[in-house]
Design a protein around this nucleic acid. Structure first.
Lengths: 138, 138
DNA sequence: CAGAATCCGTCATGATACTG
DNA sequence: CAGTATCATGACGGATTCTG
């Protein structure tokens, strides 16, 4: 299994090292995983098309998000091609968000990591405890 | 395939929503993917145990990293249980870094996403071009 | 309803110099 | 060799107020 990692990663890094454009895309995608809201927004956009306010309300239930941040996150995701934004030019305005195919696959990959994190929760917590037991016993 | 996503993600979100601790762990792992250096450091730590300076030199070849940032990144990864730090109490000091089992699996998952990003590079670039063509035509 | 505008605090990153 | 200390900065996130 060690060789599996090393061969796989070496191939990836070669490809990663070749082109600047590729490094930019990778950085972009990993950033979406790492920022505070993108994954959560994408998750709540996975079902039927959802309006701005409803999306905000759903997210607020778990963790409050400001309109400004939700707007910025959605705009970024739209630019990345992960989210589709449909505008109905009526009054009052109606805007619906949904996932693109790219967005759906992104969510699947994100979920793999999320599930893995939860499965290994205790290992992570044990590592942290041990680290803090060693460091600066004062 | 839609139901696949929705069932899978719903299960994950339920688990995600239940416990605060679980949300913390998930946030932690996703942050490691999203920050600028962790994945790169983990990649270069995947082979034989590697010393601080050699690690720095390898990373520098692609993108220069300051000693301060490399130190901080390594310490964080050690605290997360992804990297193992072996100290030899000799003079001059010798410190070797290697991956834990948790770190190896993390790298595999990260590589899935990296490979996917590269495979879909053109879709991402097309989405960005289209977005910028629409926005603010001035 | 779906944002935009403004202002502000925090954290990650980074350059530079120093040390056991 | 393997870091630490100090200082600076820019992006991200957030609260509040306003609008077509």
């Amino acid at each position: 299994m060690k060789s599996l990692i090393q061969e796989g990663t070496l191939m990836s890094l070669k490809r990663l090292a070749v082109s600047d454009d590729q490094r930019v895309v990778v950085r972009e995608v990993l950033s979406r995983l790492g920022d505070r809201w993108s994954v959560r927004v994408i998750y709540h956009t996975a079902g039927d098309p959802i309006r701005f306010s409803e999306l905000k309300r759903k997210i607020d239930r778990i963790n409050p998000i400001s309109a400004r941040v939700l707007t910025r996150t959605l705009k970024q995701l739209e630019k990345d091609g992960l989210v589709y934004r449909q505008v109905y030019p009526i009054i009052p305005p109606r805007v619906e968000y949904s996932l693109t195919e790219l967005g759906r696959r992104f969510l699947e990959l994100a979920m793999e990591i999320i599930d893995w994190s939860i499965e290994n929760q205790h290992d992570f917590e044990a590592a942290r405890r041990e680290f803090e037991a060693q460091a600066v016993p004062q």
